[in-house]
């Protein structure tokens, strides 16, 4: 069995008094892509917030390549090689495209891939290169998504978390983003891909976790799900 890149164990997470995650456990294997599915409000983004240290869980543990990071502050989790492409992109709007990349630059973790720098990010997203001096707030939605991905890569992470990167994008841009994710997976990065739309995930994922009302409802490989062993509609609604 491959090493664990990211492991959540018995997570109990709250926003104030509301209990949002209950006994959530799942495991991302090294070099694999885990699709995290669930309908609106199921707790997917909360899992991301817990993983990067934005929301300390009341109970349970988070491990990155075997080291416990539970309750470390976000900047320390980042230093352990976890990067997030957040829901809604959250690029720094008053920074230029290039500055968005530079503030996130870190030597990070050497992989087989050559290290990510502003130049390699620009080579992957030529449209960002054309706009490198522009304020990021003026980019189109698709360009902002690419910038959010590039910014995450600048830390040279070993775990990449992507929270609904296709949200609000035109189909053709979604295809571009998915192709990028495929490339990143081939480069050996361990990836969690959060989506509401399972069709986007099934082709690309190795493993699937489905959340339902803050609990893990299904843990499976993509193969098994595609062969139809589980009633997805029960967990994901109509699609």
């Amino acid at each position: 069995m491959a090493n664990s890149a990211l492991e959540l164990h018995g997570i109990e997470a709250y926003y104030g008094d509301s209990h949002v995650l209950q006994q959530v456990s799942f495991r991302l294997g090294e070099g694999r892509l885990l699709g995290l599915l669930g309908r609106n409000g199921a707790g997917k983004s909360t899992c991301m917030n817990v993983s990067v240290g934005l929301l300390p869980p009341r109970a349970g543990s988070v491990e990155v390549f075997g080291a416990t990071v539970t309750r470390l502050p976000p900047e320390s989790v980042a230093a352990r090689g976890v990067a997030l492409v957040p829901q809604g992109r959250r690029i720094f709007k008053s920074l230029t495209v290039r500055e968005n990349l530079m503030v996130a630059a870190h030597a990070g973790f050497a992989t087989s891939h050559e290290p990510w720098t502003a130049d390699t990010v620009f080579a992957m997203f030529p449209r960002l290169a054309e706009r490198r001096g522009q304020l990021a707030g003026y980019l189109s939605g698709g360009e902002q998504q690419m910038l959010a991905i590039g910014r995450a890569l600048m830390a040279n992470p070993r775990v990449l978390l992507m929270d609904e990167p296709s949200e609000g994008l035109a189909p053709q841009v979604v295809a571009e983003v998915m192709a990028t994710i495929r490339k990143l997976k081939e480069s050996g990065l361990s990836i969690v891909l959060v989506e509401q739309n399972p069709k986007l995930v099934f082709d690309i994922a190795d493993d699937i976790v489905i959340l339902n009302s803050g609990r893990v409802a299904v843990v499976s490989t993509a193969e098994q799900l595609k062969s139809g062993g589980v009633d997805l509609r029960q967990h994901l609604g109509v699609f």
Binding site: F92, L95, A104, A155
Partner: peptide, 14 residues
């Protein structure tokens, strides 16, 4: 400026 824009996200990027 990144910290003024979005302090939480600034921490997440390290």
């Amino acid at each position: 400026r990144a910290g003024v824009d979005d302090p939480q996200m600034a921490r997440v990027v390290g």
